[in-house]
Design a protein around this nucleic acid. Structure first.
Lengths: 238, 238
DNA sequence: TAGATTGTTAATCGATTAACAATC
DNA sequence: TAGATTGTTAATCGATTAACAATC
């Protein structure tokens, strides 16, 4: 592992082809692996096994190894994974070697919190504009940026590329907003508004939905029943 | 359908047994169906087909019907579903006929936004306490509630049942907080802190993670490449 | 060489979907 | 009765996992 270099792969090498078509479930876990690796690196740990990393993320180690196998062969049998090297490979795979300009639409309570969220920039997600339709919010400074009218959207996009649009408006406005974002050429949307969005093919939408998460918890809480609080009493997940 | 009443089911009735063991993927969609039904009701629509409801939520109508079949047979062949009746059945299944007392821990930017979030209470999720370890936040009033010291947790729980704990602290504090919540008897956790939590069996954890969602979007955005913005050009999802 | 751990295989499990009989 | 739409079946697809050969 100490002599690892980023050698060019031959066509016969499987690892290159492995770059293609990563399962969606795997993609969703890569950021968690990366986060756990970053925490290990901060603790000065240079190497870890799949068992150790899997434990940190609460997944089966076979699943972890299978996930990583879609990226290539970045471990060393009998030894484990080099924390920095694996971090680099995952970051590259996710696309974190470049900057991702973000606009936030809707600067209410949530939009404020998002604009002030420090971790936002940490991974190359750079907030380039805050937009709101309400005149009383425009020109306010939030998280170091001046709120602009939503109608400035096209000007913002003309000024420089925008990769991701974050929707933090009320549900009623969200479809209109996403239509404008898509028309302006933005193809990735993160939706905090509690409503389903319709978008053309080729546009990715992820949603973050507090109310749905609470309802899922309520469902399971209800099923637990009052007396039977612990289904499988003894075992504790480390 | 007009004469539908909530008759007691006989033991031979399949619908009662159907209440058992709903797949996790189905559980996660029930709140979306409920939200779409509520929107239909607000538009004065009394009946809808599985095709119509499925279109509103962007799912396959076969999937919708299969999901609903786990709850029972609440539709009418040749007609569709009564919006109010189906709403009621889904709400009951999720557990929304009762109140779910919630505590929010960590009243920073995000905690503020959550405490002020109106939609919180709309479905029976009642915020009963705001807790923070920082003395400078304690006694501040947020969303109509006075922030209390985190050490009041046990007193809050003793005062009345708490079903769900919401963690809006920095990542570094989250494990400690969840340990205390679990020790206090709370068995459902909604985690906004960007870290994996370890909990004993019988405790449910859901997470809401901005950074992970952005990274998943970045992954796909990267794969789209600059010139190939629309993989399947023509088709537009309604 | 002996011990450890990866990367991969194959079995299993759960979720999705098309198709259609049941039935309003 | 004819048309419409549900509820269910069965096929397919994707994800998880145990087991182990490969190999450091």
């Amino acid at each position: 592992m100490e002599t690892r270099t980023l050698t060019a792969r031959t066509p016969a090498d499987g690892a290159q082809a492995a770059g293609r078509d990563i399962p969606e479930a795997t993609v969703a876990r890569l950021p968690e692996y990366l986060r756990a690796l970053t925490a290990l690196a901060e603790r000065g740990i240079g190497t870890c096994s799949s068992d150790e990393l899997a434990a940190a993320v609460n997944v089966n180690s076979a699943k972890l190894r299978k996930d990583l196998s879609y990226l290539g062969s970045y471990g060393t049998r009998g030894v484990g994974y080099d924390v920095d090297y694996l971090s680099y490979q995952i970051a590259r795979e996710i696309g974190l070697m470049q900057d991702w300009p973000v606009v936030i639409v809707g600067i209410g309570n949530l939009g404020h919190a998002l604009a002030n969220y420090a971790g936002f920039g940490s991974r190359g997600f750079r907030v380039v504009a805050l937009l709101d339709a309400a005149p009383e919010l425009v020109d306010e400074t939030v998280g170091g940026l001046v709120v602009r009218p939503f109608d400035d959207l096209e000007a913002v996009v003309a000024d420089g590329p925008v990769a991701i649009g974050v929707i933090a408006t009320p549900a009623g406005a969200a479809q209109e907003v996403v239509d404008r974002l898509v028309a302006a050429g933005i193809t990735s949307i993160l939706n905090f508004a509690p409503t389903t969005l319709a978008v053309p093919a080729g546009v990715s939408v992820r949603k973050v939905d507090l109310s749905i998460e609470l309802q899922i918890l309520a469902f399971h809480e209800q099923r637990k029943g009052s007396p039977v609080v612990q289904p499988l009493a003894r075992e504790a997940s480390a």
